[in-house]
Amino acid sequence: MTGNLVVQFLAQGAQMFFVLLIAPLAVGVVRRVKARLMRRQGAPLLQGYRDLAKLLRKESVVAENASWLFRSAPSLIFALTWVAAALIPTFASGLMYNWAADVVALVALLGAARALLALAGMDVGTSFGGIGSSREMMIATLAEPAMMLIVLTLAIAAGTTRLAGVADFFIAEPLAVRVSMALSLLALVIVALAENARIPVDNPVTHLELTMVHEAMVLEYSGRHLALIEAAGMLKLVLYLSLLICLFAPFGMAPATAGVDGWALGLLAWTVKLLGGAALLGVWEVSIAKMRVFRLPDFVGIAFVFAFLAILLAFLSRGAIE
């Protein structure tokens, strides 16, 4: 029994390790796909790792009036995001700490990371940081209720807010087309785009003053602080892609009882789906233009509308079944 426990523990550790390992690659795939679609050569797929390694070696410049918050925020944000990303079931549904992978806890972890980032953005007192923080909060106030409604819709369907339980439910359930699920998928995609600062909400490659949101907040960071923030951003992308995979395409995920072989197969399936999702994101970003900041509440509001519709329909169809 103890040997089994050790294997379980190692599997959980492997999951934490894999999400961190694959994060820069996923971002690399997005950038590469975008570059190729624009008929550019593009950076090599492994550029993300090199960027992080270089930033970690570099000196960190901190403003004179920066407080402890500014210095400690990157590590805290990275830690919170990593824990959140590692909680989502990736290759197997029944890992050791799957009881902790509750969607409400996940939203709370991400909310804490976002609050820290917004505070850090305002800490030094530059105007850009303030703009970025206020815009980030504006988007978050719209995206987070939508996220909670999506969570509740899935919880109504599966009878649990535990991610592993939801994934198990959808693997076991025969394939069915449900309006509420389709609407929550759309809403979750919009929330994921907004949270990850992707086009059309925010452009991850621009440093143009008027349009940037996420980049404006982290403008003051450099060196290892910036490396941690960037890594947290990459992890967040993997987190949302894994969440979408786990909730809406959990096929191929190893069940709780699978051995090492099953896990390897599940890992392969997850990696393929994740990188496929990243490539789709690249195609999406090339084919659409960034939105005006003043249009953003409407766009993210759509996610709220869809999530609300989904939950209404979930209640109605449940009533029809009973």
């Binding site: 069915a176 087309v177 449900r178 309006v179 389709a182 759309l186 409407d298 509308v305 519709l309 329909l313």
Partner: peptide, 24 residues
């Protein structure tokens, strides 16, 4: 039989979404 209702509900749901698109 269930699939039949699923698809008709899906199409009706798409219509409702386009109603929201009209407003948006």
């Amino acid at each position: 039989m269930n699939q039949v209702y699923d698809i008709s509900h899906l199409l009706a749901g798409v219509m409702l979404v386009t109603s929201f698109a009209l407003l948006y």
